[in-house]
């Protein structure tokens, strides 16, 4: 039998190598870490395209839901591990503690964006957005002989009692954006009155924004107040679902991106941010996004599929994101006192 020694020293070296590999190395030049809350299949398509256009950058992406990502970014704020925030709910990004982490950068292409889609100080810009929608299960609706609701006002009708699931605004950004839109659109008095009327019909406030749609598609409830994205994904999967964009206005959210002050690879980070506004990226957005802010982008396939009119301003609540972010604590406190269960 041969000696075991070489094998052992090799395995020791291997173990040491593994241990060294285990310790995470901070992003080196040529490597870019993006934290995002974009959806899974979009990320896959965008990163594949970006890697083709920016072959020398090793793009690494961490995807978490909007709420989890916020907690993670703030928890790591002492020593951030990412170079850019990429596609994250603007209402969350506008938290002063997050804005403080960002460095102004006027990405190439951002000059063409409308003023509402970028920060005055250049700390963020939003290339895309998503909007609220109702997910309506047509089978349950037929079984219960209910008409298709087409507006927020419809949802408050007593016939839908116990058949509506809605995201809890205290735990879900989507839930908050919906009540913020209603309150901003109707004004505080009428808004709260409406929310209380709606509350009488709501069977459950679910803790995530996409879960009400999943509950509706699996037939647990007839209607899930959720996101257009979740509705379209479910329809594509084949569920007996109809997406309804409320005719009296849908809340929406912008997905903002920005450069981290702490980034050790700002050159590549900037090139990546430029890319997110490039025509190549815009072309991809039309495949997934109902709302694309880049001017001159052809009407998105997603918007067509959603049955949206060419001019979105008619169906979207004119959201004031700075106000949503500012009033968040007070609004949620009121919601918890008057409606929360």
């Amino acid at each position: 039998m041969r000696s075991h020694r070489p094998a052992r020293s090799r395995s020791i070296r291997l173990a040491l190598g593994l241990l060294a590999g285990l310790a995470a190395l901070p992003a080196a030049a040529g490597t870019l870490v993006a934290y995002t809350a974009l959806e899974e299949d979009e990320i896959k398509a965008y990163v594949a395209a970006a890697k083709k256009d920016l072959p020398d950058i090793d793009i690494k992406v961490l995807r978490l839901s909007t709420g989890d990502l916020g907690a993670r970014i703030l928890a790591e704020a002492g020593n951030p591990r990412h170079d850019v925030i990429w596609g994250w709910a603007l209402t969350n990004l506008l938290d002063p503690r997050i804005v403080d982490l960002l460095e102004p950068y006027a990405a190439r292409g951002s000059e063409a964006l409308a003023a509402k889609d970028k920060a005055a100080d250049g700390k963020w810009f939003a290339a895309t957005g998503y909007m609220a929608a109702f997910c309506v299960n047509t089978e349950i609706l037929a079984a219960k002989k209910l008409p298709l609701p087409t507006s927020w006002q419809d949802l408050a009708k007593p016939i839908y009692k116990g058949e509506i699931a809605m995201p809890n605004p205290v735990s879900s950004g989507t839930g908050y954006l919906q009540i913020a839109a209603l309150l901003q659109g109707m004004g505080a008095d009428a808004g709260w009155k409406y929310l209380k009327a709606l509350d009488g019909n709501v069977a459950q406030y679910i803790k995530s924004g996409s879960r009400p749609c999943k509950a509706a598609r699996s037939g647990e409830f007839a209607i899930g107040i959720s996101l257009a994205f979740a509705a379209m994904q479910s329809i594509e999967e084949g569920y007996p679902l109809k997406m309804v964009i409320p005719s009296d206005g849908a809340g929406y959210e912008l997905e903002a991106s920005g450069l981290m002050k702490s980034s050790k690879n700002k050159a590549d980070a900037k090139r990546f941010l430029d890319w997110t506004l490039s025509p190549q990226a815009a072309g991809l957005y039309t495949r997934y996004k109902e709302i694309v802010t880049i001017p001159g982008t052809p009407r998105s396939k997603a918007a067509t599929a959603a049955g949206l009119p060419a001019d979105l301003s008619g169906v979207l609540f004119p959201m004031d994101f700075a106000r949503s972010a500012r009033e968040r604590d007070a609004t949620l406190a009121t919601w918890q006192k008057q409606i929360g269960r």
Partner: peptide, 21 residues
Amino acid sequence: GGDFSVLATEIYNQVSGQMRF
């Protein structure tokens, strides 16, 4: 859990829902 709130979901509301540690 539906609307049945418990302390663990309360922590989640605070931390992930409202970014308050």
